[in-house]
Simulated scan of single mutants.
Amino acid sequence: MSTPVPRERAARGRAVQQELRARAVAEGRLAADIAEALSDPALSRWRSANGFAVVDDLDRLAGPATGTVRVPDDLVRDTVPAEVDLTDPRAVSELYRVVLAEGTAAQQYALLNTALLTSVWAVGLAEAPVMRVWESRFPQLTER
């Protein structure tokens, strides 16, 4: 019996991942648009393996528009401190980038503000496949 070459192993791994995603969609555990994005070769391997969340209702975003935001410990990074001043556009963009990429839907609802999200929405805020899911669900993000 021969040992498969790395490319063959990688192809089998992708096929298994695709099958698992299809099953999750069929069972209602994964949204079809997110499953499609997770299969996009433009998505980083880390993001593809770890997934991402997208809220169902932009109008339910309840994050503050002014003041400071207390960032949950699991989202604090070198670029995102434990508290973010919402008057600092660069800090807001970085916070929103991390929340879009790594936050749960519950964290997105609690931390993101619709007006601020719309104001910072731009190419590069998240990986392109992630942005496409948000934009397909919420076309108003691209209307500014």
Rank of each mutant, 00 (worst) to 15 (best):
M1R: 08
M1N: 09
S2E: 14
P4T: 13
V5F: 02
R7C: 03
R9I: 15
A10K: 10
R12K: 13
R12T: 13
G13S: 03
V16F: 11
L20H: 06
L20V: 08
A22Y: 01
R23Y: 09
A24W: 06
A24K: 11
A26T: 09
E27K: 14
E27T: 15
G28V: 08
G28F: 09
R29I: 00
L30I: 00
A31P: 05
A32S: 15
A32G: 13
D33G: 13
D33Q: 13
L38G: 05
S39N: 15
D40A: 14
A42K: 13
L43G: 06
R45K: 09
R45I: 02
W46Q: 06
R47M: 13
R47P: 02
R47V: 08
S48W: 01
L58W: 07
D59G: 15
D59R: 15
R60S: 08
G63W: 00
G63A: 04
V69R: 00
V69I: 14
V69Y: 02
V71N: 00
V71E: 00
V71S: 01
D73P: 04
D73W: 13
D74R: 11
D74T: 12
D74W: 06
V76I: 14
R77S: 10
D78K: 08
T79R: 12
V80H: 04
P81W: 04
P81N: 15
A82N: 10
E83Q: 14
V84T: 01
T87Q: 10
D88V: 13
R90V: 13
A91P: 02
A91W: 01
S93N: 04
S93Q: 06
S93G: 09
E94Y: 04
V99E: 01
V99P: 00
L100C: 11
L100S: 03
A101N: 09
E102N: 15
E102Y: 10
G103R: 01
G103T: 00
G103L: 00
T104K: 07
Q108M: 07
A110M: 08
A110K: 04
L111T: 00
L111H: 00
L111W: 01
T114K: 12
T114F: 02
A115N: 12
A115S: 15
L116H: 03
L117N: 06
S119H: 10
S119M: 12
S119L: 12
S119F: 07
V120Y: 04
A122E: 12
L125R: 08
A126I: 02
A126S: 07
E127A: 05
E127R: 03
P129I: 02
V130E: 02
V130S: 01
M131G: 00
R132W: 08
V133F: 09
V133I: 06
R137I: 14
T142D: 05
E143A: 07
R144W: 12
R144V: 14
R144C: 08
